[in-house]
Structure formats: C-alpha cells, structure tokens
C-alpha cells in the first residue's frame, strides 16, 4: 500500500499554507510531519482525510486518485485530531460502546491496552486530560484502519502511555499499516524509520491576481 502526494498545495482564505509538497509513504512506514506552529501540519492531515479540498496536486492511495472526491468513502483512514471526539456527559463505557456500535468491532477488555478498566464507570467530564487522550487513542484498537492520521497524539500523555502508543504503532507497522503523525515531540519516533516533511511558514498570496 502506497500513499503518495504529488506537488500538493493548499490555499485557505487567500493564504498559501504550503505548496509543492511531495511525499511517498508505503506500508509499514511511519511518516513524521514536522514543522513550527501554524505551518499547516494539521491542515495536511485534514487534507489527507478528505476534509479539506486540495488546491493543486493530487493524492493517490494504491494508484487510485483520491483527491477531492466527495463520494469516496475514506474507509481506509483513521483520523484523530487534537480535540478528542468525546461526549462529556457519557461514561467511558458508553463512549466505547458507541464507537463499537458504529465500527462493529470490540475493544478488547482482556487486553485493555490503554488501561481503561479502572475508569470505565467514570463520566468523561470527570476524567483528566491524559485519561481523555487515552480514551481517544483507544479508538485505534476499535476502529481498524490501514492509514493512521494522528495529530499531536502525545499531548498530555505520560511516559508510560507514550510507550503504549509506541507499542501500538509497532503492531500497526507489522500489520502493514502506515501512519502519518504530526507532532512536536521528537523522542517517540527514534526507533522508527521516518520521513520528514518540514513545512514552511505561510506566505501571503496577495500578489496572485487569480485568487
């Protein structure tokens, strides 16, 4: 499986966020998207997930063009943004049941990879930020997808849980999945082969009369 972006550009509200971006990520590879704040890391991930339109260039997955096709179900992508998709009035158990209901897969309680057993009956608004992040990440095991798009997955995670996340990334690699991760933190990726996309800071496009 290959995810290829060729000369990708993205313009939003008259500003060029990035341009002429080329990359190729294959099965078993993890791509680390680096860049300063506001350089378009999140935008790139949302673009890959199909939430934002590509201005120029194209994205292909296994030689199939997937750029700007509204009717394509992006069934291969897992996306976790920096806001956790959790409903504060549910308990952890109900939240997980809800995901299970939509994805038709089960969270393995015996394995309990993200140590959720003890907080199952807590309401989500009672959880700490780190716990919330863990609940959000536990969806990785419920929602089984080939391509992981993770936006700042290590935010507010402690070292133990970063280790757990690393373990899951390794498993994912073994299964032949690929992952693209936007993160400031360096250390979690050291054992992996990574591809670095360093994004430039946004340029103003006022000179361009056609936009």
């Amino acid at each position: 499986m290959h995810l290829i972006g060729s000369s990708l550009s993205c313009k939003r509200e008259g500003k060029l966020i990035f341009s002429e971006l080329n990359f190729k990520v294959s099965s078993g590879e993890i791509c680390w998207i680096k860049g300063p704040n506001g350089s378009g890391k999140s935008t790139l991930l949302r673009l890959l997930a199909g939430f934002i339109k590509v201005s120029f260039g194209e994205i292909t997955l296994d030689n199939k063009k997937i750029t700007n096709k509204n009717d394509v179900i992006y069934e291969n992508f897992f996306y976790l943004g920096h806001n956790n998709p959790l409903k504060s009035y549910l308990t952890v158990k109900q939240q997980i049941d809800f995901w299970e209901g939509i994805t038709h897969t089960k969270y393995d309680l015996e394995l309990d990879s993200f140590n959720l057993k003890n907080i199952m009956d807590l309401k989500i608004y009672e959880c700490s930020d780190g716990q919330k992040k863990r609940i959000g990440l536990s969806r990785l095991t419920i929602d089984d997808k080939k391509v992981w798009l993770l936006d700042e997955p290590t935010n507010s995670l402690d070292i133990d849980n970063i280790e757990i996340l690393k373990k899951h990334l390794k498993l994912h690699q073994k299964k032949g999945g690929l992952a693209m991760i936007a993160s400031h933190e360096n250390f979690i990726f050291k054992p992996y082969k990574d591809i670095k996309l360093t994004l430039e800071t946004p340029k103003n496009l006022e000179k361009d009369p056609f936009f």
Partner: peptide
C-alpha cells in the same frame, strides 16, 4: 454543532456508516 466541534463528525465521515 457539538459533533462538529469535538471531532465526532470527522469520525462519522470516515466510518463505514454513511
């Protein structure tokens, strides 16, 4: 609105459910 803000809508868009 809530789903849009917390990202649940993103999850729906990428899920098998249409």
């Amino acid at each position: 609105q809530n789903d849009f803000e917390d990202g649940t809508l993103d999850f729906y868009m990428l899920s098998a459910a249409t």
